[in-house]
Amino acid sequence: MECRSVTVELPHRFGRKRIIEDISFQVRSGEFLTIVGPSGTGKTTLLRVMGGLTSPASGSVLVHGKELDGPPDNVVIVFQDYSNALLQWRTVAANVAFGIERILDRTDIEQRVRDALALVGLEKNAEDHPWQLSGGMQQRVQIARALALRPDVMLMDEPFAALDAMTKASMQDELFRVRDRTGTSFVFITHDIEEAVYLGDRIAVLKGSPGRIDQVFEIGLPAPRDQLSTRQLPQFLEFRYAVQQAIGR
């Protein structure tokens, strides 16, 4: 996936406001790219452009070399407000089937739903309704729903921001498991710098108004990453410091 000189303007009072400008980067296959930046720099806008929900004013987004024309079919967005993003009147299993029920046949759908639920550890909750589950579990349902599609790229908009610290930590590791098992690329927005360093293979810092990519960090932390040991490594602290500095400047 690639962004080429993407600029986005959105209607604002009596004119248009330039939200992000001249954004160019690539997302490598199987990579975990985190995007950090202060609030309001256009991170969500950038994600929506990559997901085909918003059109850039100039520049283009390409997936497998092809320019986007609406939401591409191998890219899925996972939203921060899981409660609004899930279909509360459907069971968990029916929610996970939502993206594939028009495309595949019955047995394939059942298999994919089962696989996706197993990936996020919600096999026992297939017949529950989302409102019966905790926040972390609901977000896992949303992730499972996205995974059922077997997308090439998962775009995640601060998916763990509304969760408590412990749930957040276990969800982060769950994403690693998913990535290792499926080979999906992740573009992950967060304003939690430690989360960005812990999860990311690369970190893109979005700054300014209009937002621009200020720096891209290569995070050379060893794999597999671990909440306890990785976060203690001196390199972790160095990266955190560097990213913090890049944002703060």
Partner: peptide, 14 residues
Amino acid sequence: VHPRLYDVSRTFRL
């Protein structure tokens, strides 16, 4: 109907 549901429909290309 919450706007988020429209986003979800579009990202799943309904």
